[in-house]
Design a protein around this nucleic acid. Structure first.
Length: 626
RNA sequence: GCGGCAGUAGCUCAACCGGACAGAGCAGCGGUUUUCUAAACCGCUGGUUGGGGGUUCAAGUCCCUCCUGCCGCGCCA
């Protein structure tokens, strides 16, 4: 494997483990890092990932050379097209470490590699010791012939996370509250990551960890009992529940007597009072129905909806074990965990049981880890939440690590996949004109409406129901893509003009690129009889650019999945669409020469395949025409 | 106070845990269509990567320092 991917694992394990990062990760099992020491792979066997194949090849050749030996990492990566198809930069740091002349070393290595390249690629030394590799056009063609279907791609990719049992914890809204714009990133990113994991060979469980057992229920039940508007509840349950919560909250603030009663309702609920429990179930059901509407629009389906309430009888075991092993302690009446070796968390407590004896989200999160590992045999847990919860997850992960070590359980790999805030034009968290949070259903509806208007304008001749369908795909796709195309760790500025534009790195541009290729095939009629094996090697600059870009899919997928950063895939798809446009503009597909025609059709087919697969992995539905 | 994240072209964003002249899109300017969707493509203009030091063959990236913004930090999730 190239260092691009596994380099992440290696360096992460070795770096200052207290250095907090948004992508917080623990690596209990180092054996996962290098399953493939195999260097006996035949030269340039048509592997899925050409950069990896070269990496292995270079390393194997170097191992035979006295000046290099074992510790050399070639560091092969896709190159700037100016220099070739791939570049290996590893000689420079190696030369530095060993005190050699980098240029000389590179030339020695290149000399040996040339001898075994079998005429399949050219390799040269450039600058201070960069090694540039250019594949022969026939090799590009071979790869494209070998990876011709969705299944082929999946097979190629499925080594990345084979044998991993992953739980993705995303969306996770609170009951009795509407979903707002702030919730969309967790859903969109979480779903994309789940699909990517599956494609990469993992067994994925999607778990919606709903916030259904919080302290807010006291106030809500109190207000529900005294101020419910039945009509309002019928017309829009969540609006009414939200109103009731605010009402309850306001009452408690203005008069301690109300607060007392609200607390009493909570205690009754937690002790299992049948009336309150029934009410709670009703609120939960209403909430989940409303959530389902949104999930339906986004095409998201969970395997489980095990909310916090599910763990309410599972926290005592956690308290007992943590106490027994001296990990948790009593402090100011609460049960807390300190991490004595951590500069900050030796003072900042992780409160796992409140002083009134009630559980909180730390308690249930701990119980949840145990459940997922014990019941589902999960070896990797991924949490998709906003960055503000970084401290919480760091403390959670540290606690789990110590707890599981003390109880001789396998420690799962734990990831907090965090994300930033969606901002409005003013650079602050997006709000409506009146200053309220933007409701997610309103955002999605507006996206469809705006997309519908665009379809109407650009393609008025289509049937109405198809226009509606196209508008849904574009509208929802645009919202999703805008979210994914941005580096998730940073905040981003939302703008309708930007997300719905047909120019630039947007969903409409990519969907159009897909529709355009579909239309090429529609126009050509039945192309099934066109034999790809008649294709002759690529000749024009545009053909070669496009072919090379298609090969990069493997490496891009690895990077995307390795860092869990979907925008890497987005950028790639955008560039691929651009290379296709360049090709399509410069080179006529339907020419008379059979070999040329076959290879250009091949490029169209593969571009369509990769674009559609990529967009589907991101959770975006593609269209045949628009 | 402690900590996290960020500051890159007029605007919105990239830059693959140190690599080649910092790249796109939009906006601005100029081209391309009797030819497969112009919802496209090509070119030009635009940068002291917040400031200042340092590390080395090489720094937007690592270290120190300062400035600015957002966000956490004992019983919400």
């Amino acid at each position: 494997m190239s260092s691009l991917f596994f380099g992440n694992f290696n360096t992460a394990a070795g770096r200052d483990r207290w250095a907090s990062s948004c992508f917080h990760r623990h690596f209990p099992n180092s054996e996962l890092a290098l399953k493939d020491r195999v260097s006996s792979i035949a030269l340039m066997e048509i592997g899925f990932n050409m950069a990896e194949a070269l990496e292995r090849r270079f390393a194997a050749v170097a191992a035979e050379i006295e000046e290099f030996g074992e510790g050399f990492i070639p560091d092969v990566r896709p190159a700037d097209p100016r220099f070739g198809d791939f570049q290996a930069n590893g000689v420079l740091p190696f030369a530095k470490r060993t005190g050699r002349n980098p240029r000389n070393l590179a030339e020695i290595l290149v000399g040996r590699i040339k001898g075994s390249s079998a005429g399949r690629f050219d390799v040269t030394v450039a600058g201070p010791g960069f090694i540039n590799v250019t594949l022969r056009p026939a090799v590009l063609l071979e790869w494209l012939l070998a990876y011709g279907t969705e299944r082929d791609l999946r097979t190629g990719a499925s080594d990345l996370y084979r044998n991993r049992i992953v739980v993705v914890d995303y969306s996770s809204p609170n009951t009795a509250k509407q979903m707002h714009v702030a919730h969309v990133r967790s859903m969109v990113v979480g779903e994309a990551i789940s699909r990517l994991f599956e494609f990469a060979g993992a067994r994925v469980t999607r778990d919606n960890h709903i916030g259904d057992w919080g302290t807010q229920y006291g106030k809500l039940i109190y207000a529900y009992k005294n101020h419910l508007d039945q009509e309002a509840l019928k017309s829009d349950a969540l609006e009414e529940l939200e109103r009731l919560y605010k009402k309850g909250d306001a009452l408690c603030k203005e008069d301690p007597a109300h607060l007392e009663q609200a607390r009493a309702e909570l205690v009754k609920l937690q002790r299992g009072d049948p009336g309150n429990l029934k009410l709670w179930e009703e609120i939960k059901r209403l909430s989940e129905d409303a959530f389902e509407e949104i999930y339906g629009k986004l095409g998201i389906r969970f395997d489980f909806h095990l909310g916090e309430s599910f763990y309410r009888d599972k926290v005592d075991e956690v308290y007992a074990e943590l106490l027994e092993h001296g990990i948790a302690e009593e402090s100011e009446g609460a049960l807390v965990v300190f991490h004595p070796d951590h500069p900050r968390f030796r003072k900042q407590p992780f409160i796992i049981r409140k002083s009134d004896g009630a559980s909180n989200y730390a308690s249930t999160d701990l119980a949840t880890v145990l459940y997922r590992v014990r019941e589902w045999k999960a070896n990797k847990l991924v949490y998709v939440t906003d960055s503000r919860q970084q401290d919480h997850f760091q403390q959670l992960f540290l606690t789990v690590e110590r707890w599981f070590a003390a109880t001789a359980r396998p420690v799962p790999e734990l990831d907090h996949v965090c994300f930033g805030t969606i901002l409005g034009d003013d650079g602050k968290a997006i709000k409506t004109r009146s200053g309220d949070p933007v409701k997610l259903k309103d955002l999605l509806n507006e996206a469809e409406e705006r997309a519908r208007a665009i379809v109407q304008e650009k393609n008025p001749g289509l049937p109405d129901d198809e226009k509606d369908d196209i508008a849904r795909a574009i509208g929802i796709g645009a919202i999703r893509y805008a979210d994914l195309a941005q580096n998730r760790t940073s905040d981003y500025v939302f703008s309708w003009d930007k997300v719905l534009s047909f120019e630039g790195n947007t969903a409409p541009y990519l969907l159009y690129a897909v529709a355009r290729i579909h239309s090429i095939f529609t126009r050509m009629g039945d192309t099934a009889e066109i034999d790809e094996r008649q294709a002759t090697p690529f000749e024009t600059e545009q053909e070669q650019n496009l072919a090379r870009k298609l090969l990069d899919f493997a490496e891009v997928l690895k990077m995307t999945v390795g860092d869990l950063r979907p925008h890497v895939l987005c950028t790639y798809l955008y560039e691929l669409a651009g290379d296709f446009s360049g090709f399509y503009n410069a080179d006529k597909v339907l020419v008379d020469a059979a070999g040329t025609r076959a290879r250009r059709i091949l490029l169209c087919r593969r571009t369509l395949l990769v674009l559609e697969k990529g967009l589907h992995l991101l959770g975006i539905r593609t269209l045949k025409r628009m």
